[in-house]
Each structure stands twice: as C-alpha cells, then as structure tokens.
C-alpha cells in the first residue's frame, strides 16, 4: 500500500509542477522561489485544516463543523484580545486550541456515545457553532483597530526567512506525519478506517478513537481560528462561511478516500497546495474567480476518477499475486 500511495502522491506532485509551469507561461514571476514561499504561506491555514479533516475522514467519518469551529474560536480569541490586550499571544493560541478541543469533543462525544453518524452530528454543530458565534459577539465585528499589534503581527514575523505562519504549518505537518506513522493512535486510525470490525477484535476501541479524531480536528479548527482572524484581521459571524467544503476538497484531491482508511499526510498537504496555487494564480493571470470554482471542481472529480482507477489496478495485482502465492 505504501508504494501505491507514493505513486498517487507523486502524480499529484507532478500535476502541481505542471500547473506551476503552465501558469509561468502567462506570468513568468510565478515560479519564483519568493512567490512560491508566498503561495505556501497563503495556503498554510488550508493545509492545517486539511490535516485535521484527514484524520476524521480516515476513520470513515467527516467533520463538517470545522469552518464554524474556526469562526467561533476566532471570534472568542479576537474578543479576548480586544478586551485584554495584555494576554500574550502564546496563551491565546493555547486558549484557541482549548476552545477548539471543547467543540471537537462535543462532536466526538455525540458520535461515540450516542452513536449518531458524524455527518449528521457535524451538520448540526456546523449551524450551532456559527450561531454561537453570533450569540457571543451579539452580531458585532471585531475590527483590526480593536486588535493588539502583537495579535496581528505574530504570524507575520519572519523567522529564518519564512513567516511564523509557514513555520506553524510545517510544525503541524511534522507532528501529523509522526502521529500517523509512528504512534499507536495513528495506526489505530488507519486500522479502524480499513476494517472497523477486525479492529474491535484486535482490541482497538473504535468509539474512543473516533472521539479522539474529532478532538484533533476540533483543536486544529481552533488553531486555524486564531490564524485566520489574525491574518485577515476581521472577526465576524461570516468568517470562513462554506470553507468546510474547501477543506474536504483538499483532502479528496490529496487522495484521501472518503470511504476511509486510505490517505496520507503528504496527500492532504499536496491537495491543499493544489487548491492554494489555483486560487493564487488565477487572479494574477486574469482569470475570473468563477473559473477557480470550476477548476477545483474538475480537480476533485479527476482525483476521484484517478483514485478509483488506482484501486482497480490494485485489484488486478491481487489476482496476479494470489496466483504466485
């Protein structure tokens, strides 16, 4: 399976290189390292969110509430910052993670203990969390002038040639990579995605593992909440409205199977980058943003077709090796 995944990611990487090449024909500066760093930085939040969504999808679940969680947590930290500018940024990040964790834990609890399908639970909390944002903010916005300079500049500070936001994304990628490949929980996530019944017999607590993945996606949603608000310097009820679909799109393009069990950290990151490049490039080469939707939609379908083909190819291999064995 490892080879097969590599194969899939290499194709995605090749697709991205071709895409960058095509864009460079119209806009030569695009492939410039400085610009690519900028694209990476712009895509950081989507990458982080896609990783959080990935662990959920791997367990045959889905978290539709991530963007609402982002909106709620972002509003909470923005209001806190506006009211108490003295709270240091690292403390705010910890608060964002904690608030996100609570929201994720609510999803996870409902999925685990009440055994409700995750799509139903998170469709409900999608609305609830956004509604809760309205309740805490009273519908008011938090604007740039209410935020402390630290709040806004923390992620923009350059460190070893990259903005802190990019470093946070790299850190999250590294942590997810280690968790998914080197820890028990990572292995359990794959196992229950591939075969939940066999996992039960192997002593894996499927319900608790699902609870944990929702806690992870919640924490990621919370972290992204702070990053989003401080990047776009406005907190409102409308923040990231509908963004959950971009997150899921990044996962699907990255080869993460909606049926669970198949997918990798590299795939999710590349899937997000693919979308990030498209959204960055189209304005500079004067293509309407509506094309952007059509292109990402086509990319999703293409990815699903390619993945389905890949799985078919695997089927033939089974026959051949079954004969050899």
């Amino acid at each position: 399976m490892k080879n097969f995944l590599k194969y899939r990611e290499i194709w995605l990487l090749a697709g991205i290189v071709v895409l960058i090449g095509l864009i460079s024909i119209r806009f030569p500066g695009f492939a410039d390292p400085a610009n690519l760093r900028q694209v990476f930085n712009d895509t950081s939040i989507l990458m982080i969110l896609a990783l959080g969504q990935m662990v959920v999808i791997l367990t045959r679940s889905i978290d539709l509430s991530m963007a609402s969680n982002l909106c709620f947590t972002g509003m909470v930290v923005a209001m806190l910052n506006a009211a108490h500018p003295a709270i240091p940024i690292p403390a705010l990040i910890v608060i964002a993670l904690a608030v996100g964790l609570v929201l994720g834990a609510i999803n996870g609890f409902l999925v685990w203990r009440l055994n409700i399908p995750s799509i139903v639970v998170t469709l409900g909390t999608l609305t609830i969390y956004r509604g809760a944002t309205f309740v805490v903010s009273g519908g008011a916005w938090v604007n740039a002038d209410q935020m402390s300079p630290d709040f806004i500049n923390f992620q923009r500070a350059a460190f070893l040639g990259l903005p802190v936001l990019s470093w946070i994304a790299l850190l999250v990628i590294a942590v997810f990579f280690l968790v998914m490949t080197r820890t028990q929980i990572g292995r359990s996530i794959y196992a229950i995605g591939v075969n939940p019944t066999a996992s039960v017999y192997a002593g894996i607590n499927v319900g608790r593992t699902k609870f944990i993945v929702f806690c992870i996606s919640g924490m990621i949603g919370g972290l992204a909440g702070y990053l989003w608000i401080s990047r776009y310097v406005i907190a409102s009820v409308e923040v990231a409205n509908g963004y959950e679909l971009n997150i899921i799109a990044a996962c699907v393009i990255g080869g993460i199977s909606i049926a669970g069990g198949i997918g990798s950290v590299g795939g999710a990151v590349l899937g997000a980058l693919f979308l990030g490049i498209i959204s960055n490039a189209l304005p500079v080469i004067n293509i309407s943003p509506f094309w952007q939707m059509a292109i990402s939609g086509s990319a999703i379908i293409l990815a699903v077709v390619l993945n389905a083909r890949g799985e078919r190819r695997q089927g033939r291999i089974i026959l051949r090796k079954a004969e050899a064995a």
Binding site: T183, I185, S188, Y190, V194, N195, Y201
Partner: peptide
Amino acid sequence: KQGVVIGLPIFQNVSLPSLARTSKSGVLGL
C-alpha cells in the same frame, strides 16, 4: 470481515493487537 485488515501490510496486521507491547508510551517501535 473480522480478521485481516486488508490495506495494511502484513507486519501491521500481525502487530495490531500487540501494539501496546511493541510501543513505548504510544510511540510505535517499528
């Protein structure tokens, strides 16, 4: 349905119920 986890390699199938022994505080010992 209940035995092998198709899609995972052989060694991961074998170690699945023994992960607690082959891991140290949640980190896998490959």
